[in-house]
């Protein structure tokens, strides 16, 4: 596959930044809001946003179940921040009724790094990303409490897991899409190519 087609789930959040980053990483990128738009995708990004809102809208608009099934069937996915929460098999402290797509055997804690006043930037070394650390932008960010045997930890910050990969699914607590550094998206695009 030369130029994979990668969707960005566009229910809510920083969709445009992911589209820009994917295009820079040589993917054909477009927004996805409806179940029927999942067909024909080589990969999907779950953007940053509010995880409770994305979860509710996903149920409301009927993408929750089809997307769960697609991820189980091996659709490559990458999620940042709220996207990481949506890809977790379990949330430690969910709002009542908050659901996830799942795909990565991990337990996440929402807003673990604090409220907006504690939001921060810091350099983070990510396994598989060449050329030095990436700039990690952590906004009311979650962290990963623990991962299962199948999941690989790609990065830690301050003693907490902040990037994970399991099979074709990848997730980061931070927002590479806000930095103009597209190496994390390139890593995902390479995974999508390898899967196709």
């Amino acid at each position: 596959m030369s130029r994979p087609t990668i969707g960005v789930l566009a229910l809510q959040g920083d969709v445009r930044e992911h589209l820009t980053a994917l295009a820079a990483a040589d993917a054909a990128a477009g927004p996805v809001r409806r179940p029927e738009e999942l067909a024909g995708l080589d990969g999907l990004v779950i953007p940053g946003g509010e995880s409770t809102t994305i979860s509710k809208l996903a149920v409301l608009f009927g993408v929750m179940e089809p997307l769960r099934a697609a991820i189980r069937a091996g659709l490559p996915v990458y999620g940042s921040c709220a996207g990481l929460i949506m890809l977790a098999d379990k949330i430690l402290d969910p709002r009542s009724g908050q659901e996830t797509f799942g795909g990565i055997d991990m337990i996440v804690r929402r807003n673990a790094f604090g409220r907006q006043n504690e939001s921060f930037e810091a350099s983070v070394e990510v396994a598989g990303v060449e050329g030095g650390p990436v700039e990690g932008v952590f906004i009311r960010a979650p962290w990963v409490e623990s991962v299962g045997a199948q999941a690989q930890v790609l990065a830690e910050y301050g003693g907490h897991i902040v990037a994970v990969r399991q099979g074709n699914a990848m997730a980061t607590s931070f927002h590479p899409e806000l930095t103009g550094d597209h190496r994390v998206h390139e890593l995902f695009v390479a995974a999508v190519r390898a899967a196709g």
Binding site: L11, G13, G48, G49, E50, A82, E118, S119, A122, T179
Partner: peptide, 21 residues
């Protein structure tokens, strides 16, 4: 790890980016 920097323009503007839509 580098020391975290809070209150940057990127973190402040980035927060609003998460609210889009």
């Amino acid at each position: 790890a580098s020391s975290p920097e809070t209150g940057t323009a990127r973190v402040k503007r980035g927060m609003a980016e998460q609210l889009k839509g």
